[in-house]
Amino acid sequence: MSVLIDSILAILAVYLALQCLLAPRLTQTVFIFFAFGLALALAWVRLGAVDVAITEAAIASGFLGVLFLDALRDFSFTAPNKRENLEAVHDPLSRNDTKSLLLPRLALWLGLGLFLLIALEAVWKIPDGGGLTAAAEALLPESGVEHPVTAVLLNFRAYDTWLEIGVILLGLLAIFAVGGIKLYRKPGVAADDPLLRQVILFFTPVLFLFGAFLLYFGKTGPGGAFQAAVLWGAIGILLHLGGRPVFSVIPRWLGQLLLTVGLVFFLVLGFLLMAGGGALFEYPPAHAGVLILIVETLAAISIAAALTAIFANLNQMKKEEPNEIESTN
């Protein structure tokens, strides 16, 4: 009977993914993407991966939605008299040169087919024993936490998590490199609406508390640093939208410290552990729980700061030179 839910979710997810790619207008794409995120979150729940579902819910419905809205505004802003351009953006193959595109198209179809075949084969060959689940479960008492996902992310494979924090920071640096550092500038428009200000004031502590709860709950159940970080990053975005940009209020060194503290602490801890005679990120089992909690908190702060900075910088960046972009079109 529950196969009914699964099949509807599967159809919905694939259909929405196709619509995201094929929708003729960008605004449709953005909001269909939101629905796609919701369908994916529900699908992850059905697959039993609540951790991923929370992350998907937070990133797809919160962070990416706001980023896309910001980007969408720039599209309609930079070309106000070229609205047909915006509509045509999704129809990239104009009719007159279909012949020259035949080869790339063929290559694309072949590549996609190959990819699908590989994916099918991978699904076919899923081991019966559930892969490494048993190994992770067996080492759980030594990891300092009770939830296998958190144990894998922050203890067994802490190296990966450390690099992921670095990747997010690198994304921010790339944005700086492309558009210049506009992070410390105050945005022009403050929230003049009293109701808007009140709702921001109400949701800020709620977001903070729930993020902290998820962070701590990661020890025993689905939750953890990344989920908490997105919620805390949402605080920064809300404050930015309400005209109180975090990074232009606090001193510059504090902002830089917030952005890097997770990465640096992780690194220092790893080297200290190596100096103590272990491998990189081989926590002593007696203190593993406390160490993981500290690392997670600092990592969450760093990721939240990075997400806030990405949004703030992008939001400040594009409204600068509208005329220049328009003339180059």
Binding site: D193, L195, L196, V199, F202, F203, V206
Partner: peptide, 15 residues
């Protein structure tokens, strides 16, 4: 929270 968020966003979208 849904009541709060929903009524506020109703007002904001309308405005």
């Amino acid at each position: 929270f849904t009541l709060l968020a929903s009524s506020t966003s109703c007002y904001l979208i309308a405005r």
